[in-house]
Nucleic acid binder design. Structure first.
Lengths: 340, 340
DNA sequence: CTGAAAGCGCTTACAG
DNA sequence: CTGAAAGCGCTTACAG
């Protein structure tokens, strides 16, 4: 591995100073002799010169690099967001570091520090929760945009989804289909904002007048896996007084999948034994058995919007930028799991 | 955004030279006075000093950074590989840049050059195809490991899957289930090695003695979307002489999903109208309607293995490392789509 | 229009 | 055991 040609080599070969080469590389042609320009162009091409971004970054304190910290890279929801971020960043010449905190706030903290050391220009974070102060502080020194999950501290830029609308669409649909018993299944709250919002929204709806006489419950699943979900689902259905038509909402995509598997293992049939709505229009929702009615979130757009905001804010100084909290609308996609 | 404390600030505050701080940061304590060491530790903590990795990289020509270039980040197959890479890299203190070439060799080329400029320490590539010479050249100057897809030029490190075994398992299973007509559906070949291998393997099997009297065909789908797949599937089933039991194999996960959707829109029932096997045990395979028999690839392991090889090879000089081509075994997972 | 020179924040032989 | 100094490859005010 011989070392690559540096700016000095090119300068020497072209018979100019490194400053001139640098200007050429940065497109500052305005006051450059047409002859030198041409000579430099040829020299660069023939030597295959390519500037060292590390040196550039050191000098310019600008790395054209964004850190993306995901709480769970396996979740299709995260992937779609990631894609939106990647595409937008690539378009503007930014490259992304991808970190997977696996829902661990300790890991998330480590990654944030690591990325700071690498002098990224900004952060897009789908936080695992539990680093609110750290992130609030970070946002004071750096452009930061939160995706999907907000934090409680301070006004931080975020792009998320209207969860009140989502829950309300789901509940409304189940009521319209004649359900007289409703259940919301959620993963452990763990300070995760959309979970809080969905549970709160459900609770608020349940206490409204129109829902007098509708039995409703909120059920937290500690660990998203087939066994615990099967147990919970079994209890839920058995305890339901037979005549009541039961409607179940799962508060996220991974949980929806677990519910389908659990229903299968219990020999329950959807929608015969209960109507079912999931969050996230995952790619399998339409081919599942039964096909799944879902609250679809504009995941790609969340990512793309967040990246755009971040890049737009790179010029400004973070300290005085007003954190803005953006909520994108969701929509209900009807399929067979609620078709009665 | 005030500028962060640099090594010089710490040196000044601790009353030592920057060299000593540097040694401390790099864990070279062996010949350091216990008193200075303590003093430095305190100073660093109180100042919140964190070395600038950009400067470090420039000096050491080592960035602790790996470029991952994916042909299609939306494909769950890629994601699982990515996860294997990310986890392994994180474990060894490496961070990954993620690039999505979207099956465009032009984009892939751009990304490779961009990543070279960023002075990454190595590459993991799931190539879009069409950059064989570029990649072969790259592998001469840099540690490179190919995942999933190989290139035709030279001996390059790669971690992929035994596709002959995969096709053979699928065909064997369909024959055992009494199929007397077989079809392999594949996306456009486009120089993509696993597609070539699967088609070749299928062709080879079809010409063997045991398969005399079995009708077989290979069908290339130009664009993976519901409409073209529906058309193709319709023709396939209609042209099949009724008494023959038809078995269809889809050569990748996205295609499998399209086939399921097409079957649904044509009101075909699987396995009544044809038996079906897909490649890739995607997360939805078990909840699909019907649940899908698949050839499962060890995707996470492909990524993890590739990353390990890459990191292991970082010390060596790439020029003389022998490219090794590793093939991981696949397995057949039986489900309802072939249950007759 | 172009160059000489300083400096971004580190690391590392070399001296002592 | 520690420091002075050079240098990694760029960019940019300053001069001319």
């Amino acid at each position: 591995m011989k070392k690559p040609t540096a700016i000095r080599d090119v300068a020497l070969a072209a018979g100019v100073s490194t400053a001139t080469i640098s200007r050429y590389m940065n497109g500052k042609f305005h006051k450059m002799g047409a002859d030198t320009r041409l000579r430099i162009e040829k020299t660069i091409k023939s030597m295959g010169y390519m500037p060292n971004d590390v040196a550039r970054s050191l000098r310019s304190t600008k790395s054209n690099t964004i850190a993306v910290i995901l709480s769970d890279i396996l979740n299709p929801y995260s992937i779609a967001i990631l894609q939106g971020i990647e595409e937008t960043c690539a378009e503007f010449g930014y490259t992304i570091f991808v970190c997977n905190s696996k829902e661990s706030s300790a890991k998330e903290k480590e990654f944030i520090e690591m990325m700071m050391a690498k002098r990224v220009d900004g952060f897009v974070i789908n936080t695992s929760g539990g680093n609110d102060e750290l992130i609030a502080g970070l946002a004071h020194e750096m452009p930061v945009v939160l995706v999907g999950r907000k934090i409680s501290t301070g006004m931080i830029n975020s792009v998320a989804v209207n969860n009140v609308q989502g829950v309300s669409l789901a509940v409304g649909h189940l009521l319209a289909r004649g359900c007289s018993a409703l259940a919301l299944l959620s993963p452990r709250i763990d300070h995760v904002s959309p979970r809080i919002e969905r549970v709160e929204a459900f609770r608020a709806l349940a206490s409204q007048e129109e829902m007098q006489g509708i039995a409703s419950g909120i059920h937290i699943i500690d660990k998203i896996a087939v066994e615990p979900v099967t147990e919970m689902l079994g209890n839920l259905i058995r305890q339901n007084r037979s005549p009541a038509r039961m409607g179940i909402i799962a508060a996220n995509g991974m949980l929806s999948l677990a519910v389908l598997k659990a229903a299968k293992s219990l020999d329950y049939e959807i929608p015969r034994d209960f109507l079912f709505i999931g969050f996230d229009d995952t790619e399998w929702a339409s081919v599942a058995n039964p096909s799944l009615t879902v609250i679809a979130q504009p995941t790609y757009e969340i990512g793309a919007t967040a990246a755009k905001r971040l890049l737009a804010g790179l010029g400004q100084d973070a300290e005085h930028s007003q954190g803005e909290s953006l909520e994108l609308p969701v929509k209900l996609i009807m399929r067979n799991s609620t078709l009665i």
